[in-house]
Nucleic acid binder design. Sequence first.
DNA 1: ATGGCCCGTAGAACGGGA
Length: 259
Amino acid sequence: MKIATWNVNSLKVRLPHVLDWLAQTGTDVLCLQETKLTDDKFPVAALTEAGYEVAFSGQPTYNGVAILTKRDTVGAPTEVLIGNPQFEDEQKRLISAQVAGIRVICAYFPNGQSVDSDKYQYKLRWLDALISWLRPQLQADAAPLALLGDFNIAPDDRDVHDPQAWADQVLCSEPERQRFEMLQSMGLIDAFRLFEQPEKSYSWWDYRQMAFRRNKGLRIDHVMVSSALRDRVSACSIDREPRKREQPSDHAPVIAQID
DNA sequence: ATGGCCCGTAGAACGGGA
């Protein structure tokens, strides 16, 4: 099956892109971030019509996450859980569900704004709480788990178009990268790096300064899988095509094949 | 030239994104 993540930066604006992309790729599971829709405005009918079941959690203006599943292949998401039970949070950044025998966690990690801001401290606390929550779910005999989303972390300098300019800045700072490494040490694998990839592979480009055309981006959107899934992942790539469209999201989808 | 764009909520600018 194909499982993917995409920060759409408003599902209201990007719904046509999402529907086109689902039809073109045949993706079975799509995790969305930054839907920016309250639940009463979520486009259930259009997605149902397109053959997808949905689980979602939104709020006005900011954040918002969803999991879309292809009805004919993987059925509806079950055991849906909103948020991290160990972290009180008014911001809608986490939704998880059981899909085709896999615990799928869709996450919109905080941005952090800048390393000297309160938002950065919130980001680190949010990350610590995620780690605490996931740790017992990643024990050696644990069931398959996939963590997908906009991590707002570039794990390595090769994930950054200009590492010197971004050094110790938000998205690249050591405390954030250490927490990403903690997820890895707990058994989560960056699916993208299981395979040979083009140099300068990024998943986000600023809307300004023709950053996409100049490929001045960051790789901050990730598909991570637990060790139980490692041998079942046969491909992972970033699809730049939607970023080339008119009125695109600033993020590209990341898609993995799990057999 | 240290800002340029885009989105939602507004109903004019502003906060937030990354």
